[in-house]
């Protein structure tokens, strides 16, 4: 049972990591927090609901979430960050994105109601398992883990080995210097929002697949946890967000296993306080080389 809990924690942690990566990308580039990010993640789940309602196969939800949530990222950048690029506009941008997130929640609630909406997946898809070393693991969990690892790996390659990634790192280092080098800073920012939001959208689809429903309030609970994971891993540090997400997933699963379920969601906050006391820069922070 312990091994099952740990595997389960890794799967959940991989979804946390995808959302935390979005926060960390934007924070790395703009030094600002995008509080609409959790709601972008939430919208991914409702894209899956909409695709299912239209009778489309589930895989269709992934490219749809990628496109819709990516486009939403552009909108967030335009409405909540474009005008507030100066360093002293951190609070204004955060509040503006928070307001945009609330509008998104309201729109979803007006469309789907305020309570969770069921994602009808065939039961055999949700319950199919594979035995690995005597442990029954749900195939859907393995698929989610596989997709999450693929996306994390892909992002790492994008940031470290492509022109887009180099530009993102350059802007993260210094927007002014990047502009002087001829990098189109606004375009890089837009690209960052699109990538971060698309990742969140896909994570939202995966969570809906995993749980069997989408909920309009999940963006807040999941998003705020992803923020804590960003702090645990190191602000703006991509590897930190990935490893921090998985660590939190495992710790949460083990907390339930060892009878600390009453602590519930505060486990992540306790972990964050301890980590920041010991390593104020975050667990995996290695300076700026891995900053987005």
């Amino acid at each position: 049972m312990l091994a099952e809990q740990i595997i389960n924690g890794i799967v959940l942690g991989s979804m946390y990591a995808l959302v935390a990566l979005g926060y960390t990308l934007v924070f790395g580039v703009l030094d600002k927090l995008n509080f609409a990010h959790g709601e972008t993640f939430m919208l991914g789940g409702f894209v899956a609901i909409a695709a299912s309602a239209l009778g489309a196969p589930l895989w269709v939800a992934f490219p749809c979430a990628l496109l819709i949530c990516g486009a939403l990222g552009l909108l967030v950048e335009l409405l909540s960050f474009r005008k507030f690029r100066s360093a002293d506009a951190q609070v204004t941008a955060a509040l503006s994105s928070l307001a945009l997130g609330l509008v998104l929640i309201d729109l979803v609630q007006k469309t789907y109601g305020s309570e969770p909406v069921s994602l009808e997946l065939p039961l055999e898809v949700r319950t199919a398992t594979i035995a690995v070393g005597g442990i029954e693991i749900a195939q859907i969990k393995l698929a989610i883990l596989g997709i999450a690892l693929l996306l994390m790996g892909g992002l790492q390659v994008l940031v470290t080995h492509t022109r887009v990634g180099r530009n993102i790192r350059a802007v993260a280092e210094s927007p002014l210097a990047a502009a002087l080098l001829g990098i189109h800073v606004r375009l890089v920012m837009q690209q960052t929002f699109v990538i971060a939001s698309a990742l969140a959208g896909i994570a939202g689809v995966m969570l809906a697949m995993r749980t069997g429903y989408a909920a309009s309030d999940i963006g807040f609970t999941f998003g705020i946890k992803a923020l804590a994971i960003m702090a645990i891993g190191g602000m703006g540090d991509l590897r930190g967000a990935m490893l921090g997400g998985i660590l939190v997933g495992i710790v949460e699963a083990l907390a339930v296993q060892f009878g600390l379920g009453k602590l519930g969601e505060i486990v992540v906050w306790i972990l964050m306080i301890i980590v920041l006391l010991v390593r104020p820069g975050g667990l995996f922070s290695t300076g700026t080389e891995q900053r987005a």
């Binding site: 049972m1 959940l12 749980t211 999941f222 699963a253």
Partner: peptide, 10 residues
């Protein structure tokens, strides 16, 4: 709670 699988396993 964001994930009920640890509770379900228990």
């Amino acid at each position: 709670t964001t994930d009920y699988s640890p509770m379900a396993i228990k």
